[in-house]
């Protein structure tokens, strides 16, 4: 199995002194659907943001395809980021812009500053953006304002935006946490499609274990900034569940 990310005692301490990651080590393999679970504040989001260096790790090493990426700067860093798509809990679309314009922002790293400021995207990019909008089932909504769409539709726009980067990995930070159960499954189905049909590795933070068991191929659990479990979703039994989420926790399912 080809190794994609290698986290080696990765640490993150915020300027206010909070130690979000206390030396986390694990590997991410190419093509898998890796799910990160853990309580709020366990370091899941921080971990994900350290992978594409939106947050700077403060210790340890991070390798992408065998090369350390913790000291990349400027253009090299931006090119590295462009290989990693990301979607967010609150979608983070550009307000007041159309679906098409939002999807096209996925090409910013390869479009010159001048051209992107004046919306001068190449025909090939426009064509590709239209195709991806169709892939996520939003054909006909290209010129609608993205911030007027429903939550599930906005998340699909952000998936199309991430795909526009031609990514090798997709990071998903609680992609369904602000969606209703039915929409959640539809968005998760799109993520699975991306992983299986496009061969893009997916690393996804999730809350619901039912979703983890259904979609994940492997699970890493974090607690208090430390890795406390790594294995297949079926291995998480009642005992592990209580160790990850605390004695008082009761599992909630989402159908």
């Amino acid at each position: 199995m080809e190794n994609l990310f290698k986290l080696d005692k990765l640490e993150k301490t915020y300027p206010n002194g909070v130690r979000a990651l206390k030396g986390v080590s694990f590997d991410v393999n190419k093509g898998e659907f890796l799910v990160i679970i853990g309580l709020s504040g366990s370091g899941k989001s921080t971990m994900l943001r350290c992978l594409n260096r939106i947050h700077e790790p403060t210790g340890g090493d991070l390798q992408f395809k065998g090369k350390s990426v913790v000291s990349l700067k400027g253009r090299e860093l931006r090119q590295y980021r462009s290989k990693i798509g990301m979607i967010f809990q609150h979608f983070n679309l550009v307000p007041r812009k159309s679906v098409l314009e939002n999807v096209l922002t996925g090409t910013l790293s390869r479009t010159s500053i001048f051209k992107s400021v004046f919306n001068m995207y190449s025909d090939a990019d426009r064509q590709k953006a239209l195709e991806l909008i169709e892939v996520v089932g939003l054909k006909g909504k290209e010129m609608h304002r993205a911030d007027n769409l429903s939550g599930g539709q906005q998340q699909r726009v952000s998936i199309a935006r991430a795909l526009m980067q031609d990514p090798e990995v997709l990071l998903a930070d609680e992609p369904v946490a602000s969606l209703d159960p039915a929409t959640s499954h539809s968005v998760m189905e799109y993520l699975r499609k991306i992983q299986q049909q496009y061969g893009i590795t997916v690393i996804c933070n999730l809350h619901f274990l039912s979703l983890v068991r259904e979609y994940g191929t492997r699970v890493v659990a974090l607690k208090g900034g430390e890795k406390m479990f790594e294995g297949s979703p079926s291995e998480i039994d009642e005992d592990w569940f209580k160790r990850i989420y605390g004695e008082q926790a009761v599992e909630v399912t989402i159908n």
């Binding site: 594409n52 939106i54 860093l77 931006r78 090119q79 590295y80 980021r81 462009s82 290989k83 990693i84 798509g85 990301m86 967010f88 609150h90 979608f91 983070n92 679309l93 550009v94 307000p95 007041r96 812009k97 922002t105 996925g106 910013l108 790293s109 479009t111 500053i113 992107s116 400021v117 952000s158 935006r161 980067q165 990071l171």
Partner: peptide, 23 residues
Amino acid sequence: GPLEAMTATGAHPIQVIWYGVVP
């Protein structure tokens, strides 16, 4: 949010401001 999303696409800081802040 949009600022973060634009940074994540690998955009240049000027592009991040143009798409993440200006709109």
